[in-house]
Design a protein around this nucleic acid. Structure first.
Lengths: 203, 203
DNA sequence: CCTGTAATTAAACAGTGTTCAATTAACTGG
DNA sequence: CCAGTTAATTGAACACTGTTTAATTACAGG
């Protein structure tokens, strides 16, 4: 068999990404292999290199999809809210829920190491940077102060840290419920700290 | 050549761990391979299975060494201090400094996935749990209140999160200096939150 | 219809972790 | 001190990984 062309290259790209995500969700990152993806879309390994330079580029595409899915859920969760503090909490909750519900995909997105200097048009950090800016904006509205990037980074990384330790069983506390409580306290404390800092700066 | 016995099994185990750490520090996690370790200690691959069941068990041993080294630095940093808040800050600084100075070893310790149910006498999470308990104790002294495990987890995971995002270039802010500032604000905010919570509980 | 282009495959390559028969040095008992 | 046993070490094999490439062969254009 050769030259079937029953799918465009873009279709095949999409199929591959979906197949890869399904594999990770079903059998974990360890099972994500070039041949496994190829088998799942009904092609042989070589064909994958028609739509991706590397296997790492396929993983990158999967990760971009994951982060954009996280972003989508964050936006959905904040859609009906106006209060910046409520929005920040909703964002934190959405992030945590995704991480705990899809640990395989989430860890792949935040742990995968691209071979040096091959970050391509590093679209992944662009996405995370965009989330950071969003959080930074909301925090600015909340404190009615000039951007406090330090506080924004604390908020963003604080929630991320809870997710990471929880997913790797190193939080010290087990279970989704505990993780959520920690996230809540984390968000409250960091926001309060930022507000206090802004108030002090005004005086 | 066979049966040289110019090293005890324990010596070989130690040599392997040291070789593995050297490889990770010099060429990154990707270069950490069974044959590379064997070559570095002057043996062939098969010999590695004399001191480790799996390659994963070698990695686990490396990670245990890493976390114990982190712990050692934390204790050294707090040795001359008595104020619990000062100790907590010193712990956070020591942790962050290690993570940023040895990203390869640090990421390996906190990102490596053991094959299911093979966590062995899961000594690694025992160590991180011990750090968590230590932090929890200090926080208890600080707030003069019954243990607030939620706050302790927030503190521990907050610092960890800054390190992880910083090391993976996803913090939103670049550089060691910025990361340290975020850690400082993080620690201040979470401690303040815990104190406030304890005070409210007393009323 | 026929020809040229190009997608797809099968096979090979170097690398990975892992296993195991064979070798042979070191230990043990006489 | 020597023979026999034990066991550490090796080298070759295995199944797997990502990647490359020559050979197919279906499709598109004239």
């Amino acid at each position: 068999m050769a030259r079937r062309s029953d799918h465009t290259r873009e279709e095949l790209r999409d199929m591959s990404i979906r197949a890869a995500r399904a594999i990770v969700r079903a059998k974990g990152t360890q099972a994500l292999t070039a041949r496994a993806v190829a088998r799942r879309i009904g092609y042989t390994v070589g064909t994958l290199y028609q739509m991706f330079d590397n296997f790492d580029h396929l993983v990158l595409a999967v990760n971009i999809k994951t982060v954009s899915e996280i972003r989508r859920r964050m936006e959905k969760a904040t859609h009906d809210l106006v209060d910046p503090k409520a929005k920040l909490k909703a964002i934190a909750h959405a992030y945590t829920e995704y991480a705990l519900a899809h640990p395989g995909l989430w860890r792949l997105a935040f742990e995968h190491q691209m071979p040096e200097l091959d970050n391509y048009p590093s679209t992944l950090t662009d996405q995370t940077d965009a989330i950071f800016v969003w959080i930074s904006d909301l925090l600015g509205q909340l404190t009615a102060a000039p951007r406090d990037e330090i506080a924004a980074a604390a908020l963003w990384s604080g929630v991320h840290g809870v997710c990471h330790l929880s997913v790797t069983s190193k939080l010290g506390l087990a279970g989704t419920r505990a993780a959520m409580q920690v996230v809540d306290q984390m968000v409250d404390s960091v926001i309060a700290g930022a507000e206090q800092k802004a108030a002090a700066a005004r005086a």
